[in-house]
Amino acid sequence: MSDRSTGPRFGRSEAAQGYLLVATPLAYALLLLAVPLGAILLFSFWTQDYLTLDTTLTLKNYREAFTDPLYGELLLRSLLISAAVTAATVLTAFPIAYFVSFYVPPERKAMWIFLITIPFWTSYLIRVFLWKVILGYNGVFNTTLMGLGIIDEPLTFILYNVNAVVITLAHAYAPFAILPIFVALEKIDRTLLEAGRDLGEGYVMTFLRVTLPLAMPGVVAAVLIVFIPTIGDYVTPRLVGGPDGLMIANMIQTQFLKLNNAPMGAALAVLAMAMVGSVALIFIALTRRFLRAPR
């Protein structure tokens, strides 16, 4: 092709123009994201007694977080719920992404993706609340099943517990899981699958040996993009979780807005992020061999 592409890459003025453009959004992200995140970290080493803030650095909050079983339990539960939500979301999303990518005619793919993304853009609060309506004692689910004569009395294990939280969050994060997997599947050269079959593999083995490994980058992205934000969800556990379904975000909120113990809240936020961050890193490390394939 042309030798132009090797050109501007090294140009000094090119870099200067790039920096000039990116300066404002970068400054914004630094001031309103990086600095506050740093502040949270710093805050977590301070202490607060009602309204007086003690700025001596101490590990007191962390000690408390590790010794008080309430915090430990909340953190662990949040992690487990996030993992369950991630597994449920990604496993149910994969067939959808696969269906749209492989079986929907090209001209209708955009419409399917649009259909899948619409619910995501409608009020989150109201969606979560409606799950409460669906799963409630006199909810849509129970009344329907009773009306059909499948059950005699309402099921109670589906609301105000962890199950409800998982279902609701799996619903909320569905498009976040479907889209990256869909994009990865779309990139697969279809002749590779024919080659797989040509080389004597059946449909299932071709799927396992060709499609799945090539889709892995999308699956990994989906896992991360669902897992990380889920741990910080506040609305869902509060509305459908009941006392046993509460998560760490609810405690963070309580510390900040109710107990006036911002440093403790900050410490819990840091711990939650550290936990989710390390799990994410371990996950990336474990799946690294799938991600090495050239895009």
Binding site: A39, P229, I252
Partner: peptide, 16 residues
């Protein structure tokens, strides 16, 4: 912020 839990963004801004 695309992957950061919103509560983290919220409390960190609040603190500052």
């Amino acid at each position: 912020p695309l992957v950061l839990p919103e509560i983290i963004v919220a409390v960190s801004l609040l603190v500052v």
